[in-house]
Simulated scan of single mutants.
Amino acid sequence: MIIFDPVTVEAARQGSRAALEELINAASGPVFNLAMRMLAHRQDAEDATQEILIKIITHLGDLREMELAGAWAFRIATRHLAKTARLGRVEKMRWGFKEYTADLDHGQADPAHLDLTDAEHQLALKEVKVGCTLAMLVCLSRPLRIAYILGEIFEMTDTEACDVLEIPAGTYRQRLRRARNSITDFMQSTCSIHSAAATCSCARRITPALQTGRIAKGITGLNADQIGALAPKDVQRNVANLETAQRSVSILRSNPRFVPSMTALVEQILHQFP
Score class of each variant (00 low, 15 high):
W72E: 12
K129P: 04
Y172I: 08
R86Q: 13
M156T: 10
D118V: 13
D118F: 07
A196K: 05
D158E: 09
F74H: 01
L165Q: 01
P208A: 02
I167M: 10
R204V: 02
I153T: 13
L116E: 06
S195R: 01
L125M: 09
W72Q: 11
H194T: 11
K126L: 05
L176P: 02
V138Q: 04
I183R: 05
R142N: 02
A82T: 05
G107W: 07
V138T: 14
T171L: 14
P208L: 03
E120K: 10
Y172L: 15
L87S: 12
K92S: 14
N181P: 02
R205N: 08
L134R: 06
I149A: 08
P143D: 04
S192Y: 05
C202E: 15
T101A: 15
T101M: 07
M93P: 04
E120D: 13
I206T: 12
D115R: 15
W72D: 11
F186C: 04
E91I: 00
T184P: 03
C191W: 03
G107F: 04
A77F: 00
T159C: 06
T159Y: 12
M136D: 10
K126N: 07
A102M: 05
A77V: 03
G151E: 08
F154I: 05
L116D: 09
Q174C: 00
V90T: 11
H121K: 11
I153R: 06
G88S: 11
C162V: 10
I183G: 08
A119W: 13
R180K: 14
R94A: 15
A179D: 08
P208K: 12
T78K: 02
V164N: 01
K126Y: 03
V128T: 02
P143A: 01
V164M: 07
G151N: 07
I153C: 13
A69N: 03
D62A: 13
L137W: 00
I76N: 00
D105Y: 07
N181Y: 08
L68K: 15
L68Y: 12
T190P: 10
V164K: 01
C200I: 11
M156S: 06
E127W: 00
C132R: 03
C202I: 05
R89T: 15
E155D: 12
G70F: 07
L125H: 05
E65C: 06
I76F: 05
R204D: 07
E99R: 06
G151I: 06
G88H: 03
D62T: 11
C162H: 04
L140K: 07
S182Q: 09
I153Y: 06
L116Q: 11
F186T: 10
A198S: 08
